[in-house]
């Protein structure tokens, strides 16, 4: 199913990639944003597709008309300077922004053919399908086992203790934590090191078997060795999950992602294959960012 085309019917504005002339114009004037996102924000086998997303905090607009697709089983990296709205955008994808009273989201956001902001949609169900890993490791003040078992328990995914044990074990194995913690499953999750805590949070997320995993700067609070482990893990997970990751580190984006989206002040400036973005950035802002002139 070609979701990109499907949305073309709904939105009057053309969603085709920016034409040559527009691109040139944007390059001449580096301070101006491109009318359209440069590159190829859309894919054929989209797992999630977002069109013209605006986000407001009260009167302040944080996201301006962002449109992009996240393809099935691909890793999409969202990069950009601080305050560019990449985290805000990510939090729209499983409606974590609902917890902020003054936050308002407009535009169309779909998970396959499910409208995320359909009033009839169940957020609980949505969040079971789209899991999230947060910036700071946030294990519950419970045992390692209970942390991982929390999701399956509330969703009723395991009928017997045996099933639950199995889910916990496989989740911890997938998160690469099993060997480190199998002897102390019932000691508190808060007693683990930072990197282990973050992998525990990832295990906790995948224990619910989500279709998409959102990661909001998952390594920003970790040391380089722990970061390397998480990055390995992301590569492994991408075989079975669709992943969107917000990151501050361009190297990380380059290492783990298939495609990269560059955000600037609430706008999606450029999105392309990761290699293209990092080797042949089209827009001045993107180039300035990846060459380290700001950010």
């Amino acid at each position: 199913m070609d979701t990109a085309e499907k949305f073309d019917d709904k939105t009057p504005r053309s969603d085709t990639p920016a034409s040559q002339s527009e691109g040139e114009q944007a390059m001449e004037n580096s301070t101006r944003y491109p009318e359209q996102t440069i590159g190829s924000p859309y894919v054929d086998n989209a797992k999630m597709s977002m069109r013209d997303v605006d986000v407001f905090y009260g009167d302040k607009q944080a996201i301006h008309g962002v449109s992009l697709d996240i393809g099935k089983n691909e890793v999409v990296a969202l990069i950009g300077p601080s305050g560019c709205g990449k985290s805000t955008f990510l939090r729209c994808l499983n409606r974590m922004n609902d917890t902020i009273d003054i936050c308002q989201v407009k535009g169309s956001l779909h998970l396959e053919d499910q409208d995320l902001y359909d009033p009839k949609l169940d957020v609980v169900e949505l969040r079971a399908r789209v899991g999230m890993v947060f910036q700071k490791p946030n294990p519950f003040p419970k045992s390692i086992y209970d942390n991982v078992a929390y999701g399956p328990r509330i969703h009723g995914l395991a009928n017997k203790k045996y099933d639950l044990d199995e889910i916990v074990e496989t989740s911890l194995q997938k998160a690469g934590l099993w060997n480190e913690v199998k002897d102390r499953l019932h000691s508190p999750g808060t007693g683990l090191s930072g990197g282990q805590q973050q992998r525990l949070c990832i295990a906790r997320t995948i224990a619910v078997s989500p279709e998409v995993v959102l990661m909001d700067e998952p390594c920003s609070a970790l040391d380089p060795i722990a970061t390397a482990k998480i990055e390995e893990l992301i590569a492994e997970l991408s075989e079975s999950y669709t992943i969107a990751i917000v990151t501050h580190s361009m190297q990380q984006a380059a290492r783990v992602s298939n495609r990269t989206a560059y955000f600037h002040l609430g706008r999606l400036v450029e999105m392309n294959d990761t290699e293209t973005v990092f080797t042949k950035p089209e827009h001045d802002l993107t180039e300035a960012y990846i060459t380290g002139r700001f950010g």
Binding site: D122, V124, E125, A128, R129, I154, H155, G156, L157, V208, S209, P210, E211
Partner: peptide
């Protein structure tokens, strides 16, 4: 629709 989603859906009425 995955198996998980189905199971989640089944639990929803009670949870709500």
């Amino acid at each position: 629709m995955s198996k998980t989603t189905e199971q989640v859906r089944k639990s929803l009425a009670k949870r709500y």
